Amino acid sequence: MTKLGRVEKEKKVIELMINIYCSKKHKSKNGLCDECKELLEYAHKRLALCKFGDEKTTCSKCPIHCYKKDMKAKVKDVMKFSGPRLIIYNPIELIRHMFY
């Protein structure tokens, strides 16, 4: 089993959160809506380009803010909504995310 780096773990978490958000808020049944696909692609791109790489901290603690204001607001909404729901959908990931 391959150990994932910090960036890949963050990509998994944001994808999980966006999937929860989209299925509940946008009632998406077959994958993500266009708006959420765009947000996920943007988040993955920003994570891939993170200058700290696998040494990165959580984005909220980072001294560099690499998200555009509108995308940052969307991600915040997703996290506020999906974060508490991780206890139901993926409690292990919630625990990992909390203790990082």
Rank of each mutant, 00 (worst) to 15 (best):
N30T: 07
T57F: 06
K72P: 01
T57A: 08
K11C: 02
D70K: 15
N19L: 06
R96G: 05
P84T: 12
I92L: 13
E35C: 09
I14T: 07
M71N: 13
K37R: 10
Y42L: 08
C50V: 00
E8G: 05
A43G: 07
R46W: 01
L32I: 05
I64R: 08
T2V: 12
K27G: 01
M98H: 12
L49Q: 12
Y100A: 08
L47D: 02
M17N: 06
K68D: 02
K24V: 06
K27A: 03
S82C: 09
F81R: 14
H44N: 09
I87S: 15
N90Q: 09
S28P: 07
K72T: 01
C66G: 06
I20S: 11
C50I: 03
S60R: 15
G53Y: 09
E35K: 13
R85Q: 14
V78L: 06
K45M: 04
I18E: 02
L39V: 07
K74D: 06
D77F: 04
V75M: 12
S23V: 02
V7P: 02
G83F: 13
R85T: 00
V75S: 06
I20G: 10
K9I: 15
L40H: 00
M17I: 01
K45F: 08
G53A: 05
K25F: 00
K61E: 12
G83W: 09
R46P: 04
P91A: 08
E15L: 06
R96W: 09
K80I: 12
P63I: 08
V78P: 09
E10T: 02
L39A: 11
M71E: 08
V13Y: 07
F52A: 10
F81Y: 15
H26W: 03
H97S: 13
M1K: 13
K68T: 02
Y21E: 03
R46T: 07
T2F: 12
K45C: 01
L39H: 05
I14G: 01
Y42A: 02
L94Q: 08
A43I: 00
L4E: 08
E15Y: 05
K76E: 10
E15M: 08
K68V: 01
V13M: 07
C36F: 07
A43V: 04
P84F: 13
L32T: 05
V13I: 14
K72E: 11
C22N: 12
L86N: 13
V75G: 00
L32A: 05
K24H: 14
E38K: 15
G5A: 05
H26Q: 06
I95W: 13
S60N: 09
H65S: 03
K29E: 05
